[in-house]
């Protein structure tokens, strides 16, 4: 009879726990989902200027966010680029023009780089004028050739050059490498589908 009691107590505990949690999930899950869609929506809005709405288009398991203007005409496109940074996975949202020859803007969605160093790819508190200077370098960056970085010279946007962060060359390089690699895969995929 002893073992019956064990089973009953454990089962009851589990059932009560399950019941409480399912009620909780019913309340919180919609809020969490809504928040996450919001985050994505803001991010897409950030990297694609002048759009009214966007469509999600899936081509061979790759998600593209196609931005549209007021007349529902596609004007630009964004995609996620994921890869290894210095010590963490970097997830970058890249907004480009439709034939993917120019980056409109980028946004780092997630990164866990070295605080105060690699994290400068997202915000650089040391730069009082503009703490997001690194990401802003990508605005209107020409991508007809692969992106490259410079350390001590002034970069040329028409040549796809950006300035690396001092002391965080590896994180800077990782951002460029990830964008280059993803672009190389996504460009033929997307342009073939659209045209």
């Amino acid at each position: 009879m002893k073992s019956a009691k064990l089973i009953i107590v454990l089962t009851l505990t589990a059932i009560i726990s399950g019941a409480i949690l399912s009620v909780l999930a019913g309340i919180t899950q919609p809020i969490i989902d809504e928040y996450q869609t919001d985050v994505l929506k803001t991010a897409v809005g950030d990297v694609l200027p002048n759009i009214n709405s966007y469509d999600i288009k899936i081509i061979e398991n790759t998600k593209f966010f196609v931005g549209k203007d007021r007349n529902n005409k596609p004007i630009n496109v964004a995609f996620e680029a994921v890869g290894d940074g210095f010590q963490s996975k970097l997830k970058i949202l890249v907004g480009m023009n439709l034939d993917m020859t120019k980056i409109l803007s980028i946004k780092i969605l997630s990164q866990l780089e070295t605080p105060g160093l690699g994290t400068k790819i997202e915000t650089d508190p040391g730069n009082k004028e503009d703490d997001a200077w690194f990401g802003k370098q990508f605005i209107n960056l020409n991508t007809s050739s692969s992106l490259t970085y410079l350390k001590n010279e002034k970069p040329d946007k028409s040549k796809g050059q950006i300035m690396a962060i001092t002391g965080a060359t590896i994180s800077s390089k990782a951002v460029i490498d990830i964008i280059n690699a993803t672009m190389a895969i996504n460009r033929p995929l997307f342009t073939k589908e659209v045209n």
Partner: peptide
């Protein structure tokens, strides 16, 4: 039993935090 009880409360904390303090 302890673990189930604790896990329940941790999940409550986790989910509420995700919803209200993302």
């Amino acid at each position: 039993t302890f673990i189930i009880v604790i896990a329940t409360f941790v999940t409550i904390t986790d989910k509420s935090m995700a919803a209200f303090q993302p």
